[in-house]
């Protein structure tokens, strides 16, 4: 269900917590599973739950509570644009609108070629670099301008 590499990474996370607290690794395990699978299907969540000795519904609670988990398929590049107040003051909403127009999709939609999904995010703790966006939950792009977005899109394959 998950590759040996992913399981090895999950095992490393489990080792961070005291004996008998495997559940503590659920957030990282779900993140690792999502990295491998692209999104968290219910089967994946159940697999992770069993791996950690949790009830599937408890793992689902976690997967649906934290908004960086994707329970539906997303494009190869998930772009999460912060539009919270500090970013908004510096054009976060404009950045989102620019991307919508450029990619021809609305919020929470994926381009027909499966390349991009557009999401609106909450504060990423980087307001000094506003407006910011996050690529695939991992890479943060700061001080977005039309040019910077164009360059970023060109870089993503």
């Amino acid at each position: 269900m998950l590759t040996p590499e992913s399981l090895a990474r999950i095992d490393r996370e489990i080792a961070k917590y005291p004996e008998g607290q495997r559940q503590s690794a659920v957030m990282s395990a779900l993140a690792i599973a999502q990295e491998e699978k692209g999104f968290l299907a219910h089967e994946t969540i159940e697999y992770v739950a069993h791996y950690l000795g949790m009830k599937p519904i408890a793992a689902l609670e976690v997967a649906t509570f934290y908004n960086m988990y994707d329970l539906k398929p997303v494009g190869r590049h998930k772009l999460t644009v912060c539009t919270n107040l500090p970013c908004m003051l510096s054009g976060g909403v404009h950045a989102l609108e620019y991307l919508q127009e450029k990619l021809g999709i609305g919020l929470d939609e994926t381009t027909p070629d499966g390349k991009y999904t557009l999401k609106q995010g909450e504060c990423m703790g980087a307001c000094g670099d506003a407006p910011v966006l996050l690529v695939n939950n991992r890479r943060m792009c700061c001080k977005m301008t039309p040019e910077a977005i164009d360059a970023m899109l060109a870089e993503l394959t």
């Binding site: 961070k16 607290q21 503590s24 957030m27 990282s28 950690l52 609670e61 976690v62 934290y66 995010g121």
Partner: peptide
């Protein structure tokens, strides 16, 4: 000492929500 990452929930900045989160639960 270990690092534990959040995954998108502002409420986990509240200290007891954060503890719940480390325990592998909803925050």
């Amino acid at each position: 000492l270990y690092a534990h990452h959040g995954y998108g929930a502002y409420i986990c900045g509240e200290e007891t929500a954060l503890l719940e989160s480390i325990e592998g639960k909803k925050g």
